[in-house]
Simulated assay, not measured.
Amino acid sequence: MEYSLNPLESPDLARPDTASREALVLPQAVLWDMDGTLVDTEPYWIAAEHELVEAHGGTWSHEQAMQMVGNALPESARVLQAAGVDLASEQIIDFLISRVIEQVRVEVPWQPGALALLAELSEHGVPCALVTMSYRALAEPVVELAPPGSFVTLVCGDDVTHGKPHPEPYLLAAERLGVDVTRCVAIEDSPTGIASARAAGAATLGVEAVVPVPVLPGLSRTPSLARLDVDGLARILAGDVIDLFQD
């Protein structure tokens, strides 16, 4: 299978025909992005980026910060080095993660509807995986503060060779869960993450956080997780394209 790594390209995924409500089948698993999707931590990352660049005598714009959303951390480190941060990649990553962890330990900013949807998936026996480009040092504290049993496994940025938009993170999550990725629903907020999930073959829901969710053939979109339930995810898996921005 050839993978498209362009966040604005849509692979031609074979989906089942739209099903009636009675025929809906639940996803084998739901694969969640973390930053911006499950928790509203993007402002924490952006504040850490500003702090670091300014400490090294540079300036950091809103536009530059938006271009970083969804990036693998090594790529973000390269961008910050180009902006004047005179540190090794590992030092930049450690600084950013430590700053975000400090904020998360004060308060986990769950996105509206996230905890309710996790609870409903648990009630229906649908396993969940966290698929994030944040490193395990940050992802584990977030999972620990989620309702017990919310996530069966984590795939983090330091677990993979190729970060998003490459499909590896989502393929690895499905492998660890022992499920068919094409029978899963991925929930993402960034064009980079959406590209990763779709390239892997997962039915994908884009949730708008700090960057717009692109309009792409076959991509479902919502302004908030609070507007989706398990039936909605089953409809997405069945081939429905749900666009709640059009309501």
Rank of each mutant, 00 (worst) to 15 (best):
K164N: 12
D35P: 11
S224W: 05
A186S: 12
L216P: 06
G157R: 04
G218Q: 08
P109A: 12
V181K: 11
A209H: 12
I92L: 03
L121E: 08
V143C: 12
L177E: 03
D35C: 05
G193T: 10
A114K: 07
S220P: 12
S4E: 12
E168F: 05
E54V: 10
E140R: 14
L145N: 14
V210F: 08
A119V: 11
A202E: 04
R176H: 05
H166C: 06
S150L: 02
S76A: 14
G218N: 10
R227F: 10
F151K: 03
V210M: 13
S89K: 13
D189P: 12
S98E: 15
L5M: 14
L31E: 00
A119W: 04
Q81V: 05
V106W: 07
A114H: 10
V25N: 02
P147E: 07
E75F: 04
L115R: 15
L216I: 04
A174V: 09
L96I: 14
W60S: 01
W45Q: 01
G58H: 01
I194H: 07
Q67D: 13
C156S: 08
M34N: 07
V213F: 06
A173H: 00
G178E: 00
E42W: 03
D231Q: 15
M133S: 15
L130G: 04
E49V: 00
P74I: 10
V152K: 01
F95S: 09
A238R: 04
P148Y: 11
